[in-house]
């Protein structure tokens, strides 16, 4: 078993058009490294140069927004489902 990751439409250019990909790792950071090894360029889209999760991206482990569970340090395990989405917000 692996971790299922749902990819937003625009990032499917990195996954050969696939909506869902699989990866592994003990933390979200490790999972993103594993995904990037399989789908080059993905990490750059999700993690900033300072090594933080990009603020305009929402990542959920199961149904939990990782902002509230330790961001990139969030623990993940086989069988988990991860969803990556664009944050939707703005202002005048």
């Amino acid at each position: 078993m692996a971790i299922q990751v749902r990819i937003p439409t625009i990032l499917r250019t990195h996954t050969g058009g696939n909506k869902t990909v699989e990866g592994s790792g003990a933390t979200l950071a490790a999972l993103i490294d594993d995904l990037d090894a399989q789908h080059s360029g993905l990490k750059n889209r999700l993690v900033t140069e300072e090594g933080k999760l990009h603020r305009f991206v929402n990542v959920y482990v199961n149904d939990e927004d990782v902002r509230f569970t330790g961001a990139l340090d969030t623990q993940v395990k086989d069988g988990d489902s991860v969803t990556i989405l664009p944050a939707v917000a703005g202002g005048c």
Partner: peptide
């Protein structure tokens, strides 16, 4: 701000 979010790395 609108442009910032709309240009985010996961925004289509």
């Amino acid at each position: 701000t609108d442009v910032g979010y709309a240009s985010g790395p996961a925004a289509d």
